[in-house]
Design a protein around this nucleic acid. Structure first.
Length: 279
DNA sequence: GCCCAGGAAATCT
DNA sequence: AGATTTCATGGG
């Protein structure tokens, strides 16, 4: 995407390849807020305001390079969409969510946030995430970062039990202790298979959550998370025999390769949001 | 009251 | 190994 950075602003012409609402509300990121003129987004210790007006998108932030990565501005989504439209169901899904991009979140917080996401709904996930953020580092007058694993690892189990996170409280408690004592920069060097196995070793992380963490927290775009929605989509539009969710993931990954992540997100957003019934 | 939400762990066969 | 049950919480 053609963008320019001017001081604390990232600016580009509005095209159908960028839609803040779709990117933020498609269920990949949880820390954003509607403002009078657009959205406020927090990732790690960085914060940005996104405004779309007069045919331009303006992202105001002290950390422009972080949000170039966050919004994946150096990837050509027009080209990806063109390749994918040969699948009729994807043509529909893309038409619905054409402005989606795969956001790149801050690794550590994505791990915690997707542990919270299991068997949960997006509104409640956001509520729990904001509650956790009350103990995060203050990053401006009104907002805190999501707390680091080091901070979370000092909190007693009773703290996690007070979040309204249900049975996931102990997963957060235990994972905080693990993450506080490892170097994520080393983990980032692992290949996809090794990374997947390492993620599965965390309490509360199974196949689907591991896939989401890889996609949104490690930028591994050939990851294909299979949740309840994608399982239904598989059965109706890509059926190739009875399979478990990990098998469906591997099958669709084989089909879409490095485009897996974005394909998954177009399908997830369309079927979850459009009201089209799958069963 | 029942069912579901971006599933995973524990506990069976 | 594969199938079934249990796990908190809030909203429809």
């Amino acid at each position: 995407m053609d963008y320019r950075i001017e001081g604390n602003k990232i600016i580009f012409n509005k095209t159908e390849d960028f839609d803040a609402q779709s990117i933020l509300e498609c269920g990949q990121m949880f820390r954003f807020f509607k403002t009078s003129s657009g959205y406020k987004v927090i990732t790690g210790k960085h914060i940005a305001d996104i405004v779309e007006k007069d045919g331009e998108v303006v992202i105001t932030t002290n950390s422009p390079s972080v949000f170039v990565d966050f919004f994946d501005l150096d990837t050509d989504y027009a080209k990806i969409k063109q390749e994918l439209e040969k699948y009729p169901i994807l043509k529909k899904a893309i038409s619905f969510g054409k402005g989606i991009r795969i956001a790149k979140g801050e690794t550590e917080e994505i791990i915690f946030q997707f542990i919270i996401s299991q068997n949960n709904n997006i509104k409640r996930i956001q509520k729990i995430v904001e509650k956790l953020s009350e103990i995060g580092e203050k990053i401006d007058d009104n907002y805190n970062a999501f707390p680091s694993a080091k901070v979370l690892s000092t909190m007693p189990i009773e703290y996690f039990q007070g979040l309204g996170a249900g049975y996931r409280d102990k997963y957060l408690y235990e994972t905080a202790k693990v993450l506080a004592n490892i170097n994520l920069e080393e983990i980032k060097k692992l290949d996809d298979e090794q990374l997947y196995k390492w993620l599965l070793s965390l309490k509360g992380v199974g196949p689907k959550v591991a896939s989401c963490i890889m996609l949104f927290g490690f930028g591994r775009k050939s990851s294909f998370p299979v949740d309840t929605w994608i399982e239904k989509v598989y059965k109706k539009y890509f059926y190739n025999g009875e399979m478990t969710r990990p098998q469906i993931s591997a099958f669709l990954q084989g089909k879409f390769g490095v485009m897996s992540g974005i394909v998954q997100q177009y399908l997830f957003y369309y079927f979850r949001s459009s009201g089209e019934i799958i069963d």
